[in-house]
Design a protein around this nucleic acid. Structure first.
Length: 815
RNA sequence: GCCGGGGUGGCGAAACUGGUAGACGCGAGGGACUUAAAAUCCCUUGGGGGAAACCCCGUGCGGGUUCGAAACCCGCCCCUGGCACCA
C-alpha cells in the first residue's frame, strides 16, 4: 500500500470553513426550499469565559441531527443566537468593572469565533441577540400583547431586600439569610411587580403535553411543576373576632383529603391571610401582630427552605367543623402558604405529618379517622405519628367503613348538598413574576401617569431603549438604576400628554427566550416581530434540543407565550416544539461541568491540537447523548486515529477490480446502523459502528476498494464535516457532501448469509453452531447435538427445546 | 422528604422487544517496522483454576419470576440532577 499524504486537520478545517463562507454552504434558502426542517438548539448565554465543552457537546449533537436531515434531502434551518441579558452579565460586569454594553459584544465575538471553529452548520444571517434593541423591541411588543389581553397585571409581591446595599436580591444572592455581597441580614419587602397570568393556562399546558413528542423526563417534570391536585374547597363558618363582623367570615380551605374532615381539629391561616385581622381577638392581638411581623421580616429564602420547626399563634377565635359541628380553634402559622390554594387549611393532625407536628408542639387534639384495612380503632388510642396511607374511615359517623377514595367522593357530595363544600381542581403553578429591579434587561414598556395610571408605550414608539448608565450599581438612594436617569425617566404620558414616569423595572430574561424561536426566520425583518408567511412555513420547530435544567421554566414559558399569541390570532399553532430531546451533561471529576464548580474545559486547545472534527467525534463518542459523558483528556486519541484511518483508506482506495462482497455486506449493515442510530441521537453507537467497519476494510492491511469507503465519507459527514468535505472532493465530487444525499442500504446485501446460534444446555452456554438465518429448529437441534461440547452436557433425556431463530437454542435436559 | 437519571472490566462505554455480557474506544502488555525513537501495523487484555482440552465465578446488595435476567417483580444500599412545609 502506498504511503498516503497525511491528514492535516488544521489545513482541512480552515479550507472548508472558508469555502462554506464563500459558497454560502450553510445558508438556508428559507423562502424556497422544500420539506423544511427547523433544527433548534437552546441559545447560549455568551459568558466571558467563552464557549465551554458542555456547550459544544450540546451544539454538536444538534448540528449532527440537522446535517443528517439535510443529507436526507430536507431544507434544514439551523439558527443560533445569544441570550445576553440578565443578572449573570450584570454581576460579571460589576465584578470586572466593565460596562455590559462593552462586555457583551466582545463575548459574542469570541463565541462566534469558537462556534465557527467547531464547524456548526449555522446560518449566521439569522443570528439574534436579545440585547439588541432591534430584538428587544419585539420582546417589549410581546409584553404588550399580553398586557392588551389582560394577561399582564401588577400586584404586590415580596422580594429579598438588602437594607445595607438598598437593593433587591435574587434568591441565589441570599446565603443563609444574608446578602452575599455585604453580609447584612436580608429582609422581605413588598413591591408592586408585573406578573403574567400563566396559571390561567395551567389546564391547557397540562393537557397539551399528551400530544408532544418530548423526552418523558421533561414531560414528567412539567406535569409535576404544573402540579394539578383534585380535592375540595370546604367552608368553615367562624364566630368572628371581637369586632362587629361584616361580610362573610367563613374560612375557605382547600384540601385533597375531604375524607378526613371528621378529624379536622383546628384551622390554620397563612400569616398574610386577609381574615387574620378580623378573626384575631383583643387578647391575642399583640401575639398575632408580632408573629406576622416576624414572618414578614424574614427573607424569602429562609422562609422557603428554613427550619421545619412549627411555629404559630392562636387567633382567639373559633370555627365550626361543618362535618362534626364541633367548635375548633383558628390559628396562624407560617407553614401555611398564602399563595397556594386558599391560604388556609383544615388541620387533620391524625393524617398529615405537618399538622401532626404542629398539634404536638401546641397540644392540639389529634383524632384518627382513617385506619388500615381490618384494624379496629378505639376512640382513646393515641397515634404516635400521622397515618397517611389508605384504609377505611373510622370515627366518621355514617361514613365509617368507606375507603379513602369513596370517602372523598361521598363526604364532598354530602357537604356540597349543605352548601359547605365544592369539588375543586387546584394547580401548583404560580403566575410568572417578570419584574426585575435591575439594569441589564429590556425596560418594561409602561409609563405611569398621575391622571391615566399605567399606560402602555404605543407599539410605534418601541423600542424603549435601555439608556446607557455608566454607573449602574445600586446606590444608597434606594431607587432602581433606571430611575436615576432623569431624561429617560421623565416622559410625557402617551395618552394625555401630562407628566409621566417610566417603569423602571426590566423584564425577566426568560421573557427574551420565551419567543426567540419565532424570531429566527424573521430576524432580518425590522417591521414585524415575526412574518406571518415565514412563520407558517417554518414553525412549529421540528426538533428542539437543550438541557433538562430548562425542563420547567423556559419550556413552560415558551409554551405559554406561544399559546397566548395563538389565541391572539397571531400564530396558527399553540405548541411551539413538536419534538424536544434533553441532552445530557458533560461530567468532569464526578460533577456536572459548570462555571460555579470551576471545572469547565475550554475547547479551543483541543480543537487546535486534534482538530474540530476529531473533537466533535470524541464528544459524541463519550457516551449516550441524552445522558452525557465523562470528560477525560486521554480518550480523544481514538476518534482522531479513526479519522486518520478514514483519510488514508480513502486516499489509498482503488477503483480497479471489484469490491469485496463480504465487505460490501458489512458496509450495508453499517449504513443501516448509522441511519437508524442518528435519529435516536444514539451517536456513540453510530460512531462505534463506523469504527468497527473501518477495522473490517483495513484488516490485514488490504487496500480498500473505492466503493467500500466512499459511503463512509458520507456517513461520517454529520460528525466530522470538514474532513468529509475534503475527502468527498478528492473522490471527484464538485458539490458539497451535504448536498449529495445520504447512502441507502440494500436489505438484501445487509442480510447475513449465516448466523452463529448460541447453544445452551439448561441455560448454560455450551457451544455455538453456524447455520442459515432461517434454519428449522430440528436442523439446529441436530447440529447442536453434533457439537462435542454440547453432547457432553446433554446426556440426559431432552425435556424441552427453546429455539430463538438466529439467536439461540436452549436444550433442557434431565428431570 | 418528593420526583427524575444512573450503578456493567483498570477507564469511557455496548447489549434490539428477556436470548452468546463486555461491541467500539482509551489505557496496559507483547510483537513487527526502525540504527533508535515517534508514528503506524499485528496480537493479547473481566476474575479464578488448568500444561491443554476445558471448567467455575461474574452486570451495586438480598430474594423472586422464567428454559433463560444487566434488562421484569419485591425489599435495600450508593452516586447524581431537580424540587422543596404545595395542604
Amino acid at each position: 500500500m502506498p504511503v498516503p499524504e497525511g491528514y492535516d486537520s488544521a489545513v482541512v478545517e480552515a479550507k472548508w470553513q472558508d469555502r462554506w463562507r464563500s459558497r454560502g454552504t450553510n445558508a438556508t434558502d428559507i423562502g424556497a426550499g422544500a420539506d423544511k426542517f427547523y433544527a433548534l438548539m437552546m441559545f447560549p448565554y455568551p459568558s466571558a469565559e467563552g464557549l465551554h465543552v458542555g456547550n459544544l457537546f450540546a451544539f454538536t449533537g444538534n448540528d449532527i441531527y440537522g446535517r443528517y436531515h439535510r443529507m436526507r434531502g430536507r431544507t434544514v434551518f439551523e439558527p443560533l443566537g445569544y441570550d445576553a441579558f440578565g443578572i449573570h452579565s450584570e454581576n460579571y460586569a460589576l465584578k470586572v468593572g466593565v460596562h455590559p454594553s462593552v462586555l457583551i459584544p466582545r463575548n459574542i465575538a469570541n463565541f462566534r469565533r469558537q462556534l465557527e471553529q467547531a464547524g456548526l452548520m449555522v446560518d449566521w444571517r439569522y443570528a439574534v441577540e436579545t440585547t439588541d434593541p432591534e430584538y428587544y423591541r419585539w420582546t417589549q411588543w410581546v409584553f404588550l400583547q399580553l398586557y392588551d389581553r389582560g394577561l399582564a397585571y401588577r400586584k404586590q409581591a415580596a422580594v429579598n431586600w438588602c437594607p445595607f446595599d438598598k437593593t433587591v436580591l435574587a434568591n441565589e444572592q441570599v446565603i443563609n439569610g444574608e446578602c452575599e455581597r455585604c453580609g447584612s441580614k436580608v429582609e422581605q419587602r413588598f413591591l408592586e411587580q408585573w406578573f403574567f397570568a400563566i396559571s390561567r393556562f395551567a389546564p391547557r399546558l397540562l393537557a397539551n403535553l399528551e400530544g408532544l413528542d418530548w423526552s418523558d423526563t421533561t414531560k414528567t417534570a412539567q406535569r409535576n411543576w404544573i402540579g394539578k391536585s383534585e380535592g375540595a374547597e370546604i367552608r368553615f363558618p367562624t364566630e368572628g373576632g371581637d369586632a362587629v363582623a361584616t361580610g362573610d367570615l367563613a374560612v375557605r380551605v382547600f384540601t385533597t383529603r375531604p375524607d378526613t374532615v371528621f378529624g379536622a381539629t383546628y384551622l390554620v391561616l397563612a400569616p398574610e391571610h386577609p381574615l387574620v385581622a378580623t378573626l384575631t381577638t383583643a387578647d391575642q392581638r399583640a401575639a398575632v401582630d408580632s408573629y406576622r411581623q416576624l414572618t414578614a421580616d424574614q427573607d424569602l429564602v429562609s422562609r422557603r427552605i428554613g427550619t421545619r420547626e412549627k411555629t404559630g399563634v392562636f387567633t382567639g377565635s373559633f370555627a365550626t367543623n361543618p362535618a362534626t359541628g364541633g367548635r375548633i380553634p383558628v390559628w396562624v402559622a407560617d407553614y401555611v402558604l398564602m399563595d397556594y390554594g386558599t391560604g388556609a387549611i383544615m388541620a387533620v393532625p391524625g393524617h398529615d405529618e405537618r399538622d401532626f407536628a404542629f398539634a404536638t408542639v401546641f397540644g392540639l387534639p389529634i383524632v384518627q379517622v382513617v385506619a388500615p384495612e381490618g384494624v379496629a380503632v378505639s376512640a382513646g388510642a393515641p397515634l404516635v405519628a400521622a397515618y397517611t396511607d389508605g384504609g377505611r374511615l373510622v370515627q366518621s359517623e355514617r361514613f365509617d367503613g368507606l375507603t379513602v377514595d369513596e370517602g372523598k367522593r361521598r363526604i364532598t357530595a354530602w357537604l356540597a348538598d349543605r352548601g359547605a363544600a365544592s369539588p375543586v381542581e387546584n394547580y401548583r403553578l404560580h403566575d410568572w413574576c417578570i419584574s426585575r429591579q435591575r439594569y441589564w434587561g429590556p425596560p418594561i414598556p409602561i409609563i405611569y401617569c398621575d391622571t391615566c395610571g399605567p399606560v402602555p408605550v404605543p407599539a410605534d414608539q418601541l423600542p424603549v431603549v435601555l439608556p446607557f448608565i455608566a454607573d449602574f450599581k445600586p446606590d444608597d438612594s434606594g431607587v432602581s438604576p433606571l430611575a436615576r436617569h432623569e431624561e429617560w425617566y421623565r416622559v410625557p404620558c402617551p395618552r394625555c400628554g401630562g407628566a409621566g414616569r417610566r417603569e423602571t423595572d426590566v423584564s425577566d430574561t426568560f421573557l427574551d427566550s420565551a419567543w426567540y424561536f419565532l424570531r429566527y426566520p424573521s430576524a432580518t425583518r425590522t417591521d414585524v416581530a415575526f412574518d406571518p408567511a415565514m412563520t407558517r412555513r417554518w414553525l412549529p420547530v421540528d426538533s428542539y434540543i437543550g438541557g433538562n435544567e430548562h425542563a420547567v421554566l423556559h419550556l413552560l414559558y415558551a409554551r405559554f407565550v406561544t399559546m397566548v399569541l395563538h389565541d391572539a390570532g397571531l400564530l396558527d399553532f399553540e405548541e411551539p416544539f413538536t419534538r424536544f430531546r434533553a441532552h445530557g451533561h458533560i461530567v468532569r471529576d464526578g460533577a456536572k461541568m459548570s462555571k460555579s464548580r470551576g471545572n469547565i474545559v475550554n475547547p479551543d486547545r483541543y480543537m487546535t491540537e486534534w482538530g474540530a472534527d476529531a473533537f466533535r467525534t470524541y464528544l459524541m463518542f463519550l457516551g449516550p447523548y441524552e445522558q452525557g459523558g465523562d470528560f477525560h483528556d486521554g480518550g480523544i486519541a481514538g476518534p482522531r486515529r479513526f479519522l486518520d484511518r478514514l483519510w488514508s483508506a480513502t486516499i489509498a482506495s482503488t477503483t480497479t477490480g471489484t469490491a469485496d462482497a463480504r465487505v460490501m455486506s458489512e458496509l450495508h449493515r453499517t449504513i443501516r446502523k448509522v441511519t437508524e442510530d442518528i435519529p435516536r441521537l444514539s451517536y456513540n453507537t453510530a460512531i462505534a459502528a463506523l469504527m468497527a467497519y473501518m477495522n473490517v476494510i483495513r484488516s490485514g492491511e488490504r487496500t480498500p476498494h473505492r466503493a467500500e469507503v466512499a459511503p463512509v465519507v458520507q456517513l461520517v459527514a454529520p460528525f466530522a464535516p470538514h474532513i468529509a468535505e475534503e475527502l468527498w472532493e478528492r473522490l471527484g465530487h464538485t458539490t458539497s457532501v451535504f448536498d449529495d444525499g445520504w447512502p441507502s442500504f440494500d436489505p438484501a446485501l445487509a442480510a447475513e448469509h449465516t448466523v452463529t446460534v448460541a447453544v445452551q444446555v439448561n441455560g448454560k452456554l455450551r457451544g455455538t453452531v453456524i447455520v442459515a438465518p432461517d434454519a428449522a429448529q430440528d436442523d439446529v437441534y441436530a447440529a447442536a447435538l453434533a457439537e462435542p461440547g454440547v453432547a457432553k452436557h446433554a446426556t440426559a433425556t431432552t425435556r424441552k427445546v427453546v429455539y430463538v431463530p438466529g439467536r439461540l437454542i436452549n436444550i433442557v435436559v434431565g428431570g
